[in-house]
Amino acid sequence: MFEPCNCGSGKTYLGCCGRLHSGTPARDAEELMRSRYAAYARGKTAYLQKSWAVETRPLTLTLDPAQVWTGLKIERHEATGPDTAIVRFTATWRMGAQTGRMTETSRFRRDGAGWVYIDGAVE
């Protein structure tokens, strides 16, 4: 059965973000960003915590199950150094009858074999 990935890649979940959620390191910051979006959409708080830089990671993370993430658009992925990058994205959501969008420029860095999210500026 074809289960599309939440990140909008057009791939199956297992062949896309599911690999990262199961422990495969992200190859670049965009792949990590996509997997983090899919983790928000699927309520995978443990993955979100694990993929967050230790110095900026919240002690706890609670997601609102009423908030449904409905789309992701990657607008820019740019290396800012040999082991750092930014990703600008817009994510859309729905909560009951209310809808919204969030645009953020996120900072990432290479950490071992993969990447971690540092922080982001919401626009």
Rank of each mutant, 00 (worst) to 15 (best):
73 K>N: 13
39 A>S: 11
4 P>D: 09
46 A>K: 08
98 Q>G: 15
40 Y>W: 10
31 E>S: 15
18 G>K: 00
5 C>R: 01
14 L>D: 12
103 T>F: 02
99 T>S: 14
94 R>K: 11
63 L>F: 01
61 L>Y: 04
39 A>I: 06
45 T>M: 09
27 R>W: 04
66 A>W: 08
118 I>Q: 09
85 A>V: 07
110 R>I: 05
90 T>F: 00
69 W>F: 10
65 P>V: 00
25 P>K: 01
4 P>S: 04
110 R>Q: 03
90 T>M: 10
109 R>W: 03
74 I>T: 00
118 I>T: 15
18 G>Q: 10
22 S>P: 07
113 A>R: 10
11 K>C: 12
81 G>W: 07
67 Q>H: 05
11 K>L: 15
53 A>D: 15
117 Y>H: 11
33 M>Y: 02
65 P>Q: 09
78 E>F: 10
94 R>G: 11
47 Y>N: 05
18 G>R: 01
42 R>L: 12
117 Y>I: 07
92 T>N: 10
37 Y>N: 09
65 P>R: 07
79 A>D: 08
83 D>Q: 06
64 D>G: 03
25 P>C: 02
112 G>V: 01
108 F>N: 01
72 L>A: 08
48 L>R: 12
52 W>G: 07
36 R>P: 14
75 E>S: 09
53 A>S: 10
30 E>K: 06
99 T>E: 05
82 P>R: 14
86 I>R: 04
11 K>V: 04
74 I>H: 02
38 A>S: 11
29 A>H: 00
97 A>I: 07
59 L>C: 09
99 T>L: 09
87 V>D: 02
104 E>W: 09
123 E>P: 13
40 Y>K: 04
64 D>T: 11
62 T>P: 05
9 S>H: 08
56 T>Y: 00
102 M>F: 13
71 G>N: 05
53 A>H: 14
88 R>F: 11
71 G>P: 04
120 G>L: 07
63 L>H: 06
102 M>Y: 15
24 T>A: 14
114 G>V: 00
70 T>F: 06
117 Y>W: 03
42 R>C: 12
103 T>A: 10
9 S>E: 06
90 T>C: 14
14 L>Y: 12
102 M>G: 14
23 G>S: 04
48 L>S: 04
107 R>A: 13
107 R>I: 05
29 A>S: 06
87 V>A: 05
21 H>T: 05
12 T>W: 06
115 W>E: 03
17 C>I: 02
56 T>R: 00
96 G>D: 07
110 R>Y: 04
13 Y>V: 08
37 Y>I: 08
120 G>Y: 03
51 S>D: 01
66 A>R: 10
82 P>S: 13
40 Y>L: 09
44 K>L: 15
41 A>R: 01
104 E>R: 13
72 L>K: 00
5 C>F: 08
87 V>R: 02
100 G>V: 10
109 R>A: 10
36 R>H: 05
33 M>K: 02
80 T>K: 01
7 C>E: 02
82 P>A: 11
28 D>W: 07
9 S>C: 07
115 W>R: 04
47 Y>M: 12
40 Y>H: 09
101 R>H: 12
123 E>D: 15
23 G>R: 03
8 G>R: 00
51 S>G: 04
47 Y>K: 01
108 F>L: 05
110 R>F: 03
117 Y>F: 10
25 P>R: 00
99 T>K: 11
64 D>M: 03
103 T>R: 13
74 I>K: 09
3 E>W: 13
